[in-house]
Design a protein around this nucleic acid. Structure first.
Lengths: 194, 194
DNA sequence: TTCATTAGTTACCGATCGGTCATAAATTGG
DNA sequence: CCAATTTATGACCGATCGGTAACTAATGAA
């Protein structure tokens, strides 16, 4: 038996909630904020997504899925392993700063705000880190086999340095840096490492 | 005329409050937490330090003062301009992770959590950034004059890349990296840039 | 000793927090 | 049309939030 049909698109609602968390972080985003952002009422939110923490986890996963999708696309269309890396990272900068998205990176915000004391969040972030690290390192190893990356470089170390750099760039962005500055810094960092 | 003498050391109290904010961030640190951390009552906190936001600003300034003091010492005792830079940054890693301090960096936490929507905090952080950037860049320029740093390097770019890297490292630390890993990564980053 | 002044303590404030529940509305199967 | 089921809505919950005011305690100056 089928009851009353829902009047909203769960996907749109989750997207709206994600943006709210993205803009303000977990603690500073109240249920009222989420109600305002999504357009539906408290009860409906709870019925469809569970409590605030659960809604956050779903928002976070959605965000990370988009990040991974973005990475996957960039790597698929890349001309070479090394330029794939470049494309992925420059793409992240574009995504973080474009007009309709809140500034900064939800992943970094979450890492700083929640990971230290929230095991569920930490698990998700650790998994994501593994995924990013794994694919970037694989890419660099292939670049090394192709001769695109010098043999004396360490793919693992370069990968980590790039990931740390991207985390730092997201933080740096909070003090007002633009996307262009971000691209310039990333280019310099890549030149230093390759 | 002199009234009843205060029964606590304002400096110790501010240190305790700072650690509380450091460990949990601004929003997640409630007045009850601060009362528990400092040992005094709400009323005394307000009388001596103003409201929560004001107390946070004082805690933040105290933290940043310590950071600058740490930097100043390291530079004063350095064998050369470039090793001064190394000492400062490795010193930061030691300070962030040692036993009696909360993990991570209050500055980065604050940058991520508050700077985007708190102008007073942003001003403080911008000033701090200027200070750090200025002294590091000056150090690198001197290194360049001494021939310790190659002439074709850009002191400004290296400075920013190092600051971004340190921000990233603080974030990275939230997913469980140890101080030793931090030192190893910093060494690699320095080797890439110098 | 008295009094002004400052600090410590407690009870209390309205607002908001995250979360629940009873009810109304909308749908399909019988 | 009626019952069963699901969703939407808004009133309501206790707890906690940051903040305040009234009162007590301790001090030095007069």
């Amino acid at each position: 038996m089928v009851g009353r049909p829902r009047e909203f698109d769960p996907d749109e609602v989750l997207e709206a909630a994600m943006r709210a968390f993205w803009a303000n972080g977990y603690e500073s985003t109240s249920l009222s904020d989420l109600v305002a952002a999504t357009g539906l009422h408290k009860g409906s939110l709870y019925q469809s997504f569970g409590d605030k923490h659960s809604l956050f986890l779903q928002s976070l996963n959605r965000y990370l899925d988009e990040v991974r999708e973005c990475k996957k696309e960039a790597l698929a269309n890349a001309e070479s392993p090394l330029s794939g890396i470049r494309d992925v990272l420059h793409g992240f900068i574009d995504k973080s700063g474009d007009g309709d998205c809140p500034h900064g990176c939800l992943a970094v915000k979450t890492l700083v705000e929640m990971a230290p004391h929230d095991p569920e969040v930490k698990l998700i972030m650790d998994k994501h880190k593994q995924d990013m690290q794994g694919s970037m390192q694989a890419q660099l190893e292939e670049a090394q086999r192709n001769g695109e990356l010098a043999a004396d470089k360490s793919p693992e170390m370069i990968t980590i340095l790039l990931m740390v750099f991207m985390d730092g760039l997201a933080t740096w962005g909070n003090s007002g840096a633009s996307a262009e500055e971000g691209h310039a810094l990333l280019t310099a960092q890549l030149d230093a490492l390759f």
